[in-house]
């Protein structure tokens, strides 16, 4: 859904303009949505709330992460994933005051950690946030020039060759402000398209030698896609951050389930 909003912005400069859509519905595991007959307002609203949260964090405001709404699958009476069912029962027991004191205490610690991770996730948009602010203030060309000067962005790269998941690009000079292991977004600057909605691919820097930079893309398919879509365009590299939300949340979930297994009497967690 977020990508659909981005596509609206890319082609119509207005994320709420669905007029250029060539298909009638979006089919997703959460349901089927018909943009033109306004069945997606609830989902778009959720995206806006999440985006506002990220924006407020980046603007330095003291905001609290919101507890997420329950998954739309379960809300509609369908059977959700095991994880989803687990948290629903957990929440139900909490409201009924049935949680043992120790488990309740641990649950609070788990949720505090989850909220901290969500907040950090918001901060991973930092570079895009800076780009967006500068573009609004100075216009795209001047913003890119300033960002290039500060090392957030670098441009004038040309595609040399690729080898498996690696891609080698040549810069215009030897002063490439990137180091190995940094995560970057390779943006193909398209004519008449806003910079942040241009075609892009994420990669990590493997090596920088003189004016040559070696990037590692996620997969060979990503390299093939980038070759077809990106490398004929003017290439800009923007610093990016790795999203570790999922890998950080998984261990918390494992221990939360263990705590429930130990402290909640058998049968309580059954629906």
């Amino acid at each position: 859904m977020q990508n659909s909003l981005l596509a609206n912005y890319r082609y119509c400069l207005n994320e709420n303009d669905w007029s250029k859509y060539r298909f009638s519905c979006i089919v997703h595991y959460t349901g089927a949505y018909f943009p033109r007959i306004e069945t997606i307002e609830k989902e778009v609203e959720k995206i806006r709330i999440n985006r506002k949260f990220a924006h407020d964090v980046l603007c330095g405001m003291r905001v609290h992460a919101l507890r997420p709404n329950f998954c739309p699958v379960c809300d509609k009476g369908l059977e959700g994933s095991k994880e989803c069912q687990f948290y629903q029962r957990d929440a139900r027991l909490f409201h009924e005051g049935m949680l043992p004191a120790q488990y309740d205490k641990l649950t609070r610690q788990f949720f505090a950690k989850r909220y901290a991770i969500l907040k950090e996730r918001a901060e991973t948009h930092l570079h895009k946030h800076v780009v967006s602010i500068l573009i609004d203030r100075y216009g795209e060309e001047e913003a890119i020039r300033r960002l290039e000067k500060t090392g957030i962005m670098c441009r004038k790269f040309t595609y040399d060759f690729d080898d498996g998941e690696k891609v080698i690009l040549s810069g215009a000079d030897n002063d490439i402000p990137l180091e190995p292991r940094k995560i970057v977004r390779i943006i193909g600057k398209e004519k008449d398209k806003p910079l942040l909605s241009c075609i892009s691919e994420q990669a990590s820097v493997m090596e920088v030698i003189n004016n040559k930079i070696t990037l590692s893309l996620r997969s060979k398919i990503a390299v093939r896609r980038a070759k077809r879509q990106l490398f004929d365009l003017s290439i800009i590299l923007l610093r990016d951050e790795l999203n570790l939300t999922r890998s950080m949340l998984r261990p918390i979930h494992t221990f939360h389930k263990l705590a429930a297994d130990i402290f909640i009497p058998q049968g309580f967690m059954m629906s």
Partner: peptide, 16 residues
Amino acid sequence: SISYGVNSIIELASTC
């Protein structure tokens, strides 16, 4: 044998 001394995630991991 539910231990009542578990008050933090560290203690939980330790007892697991």
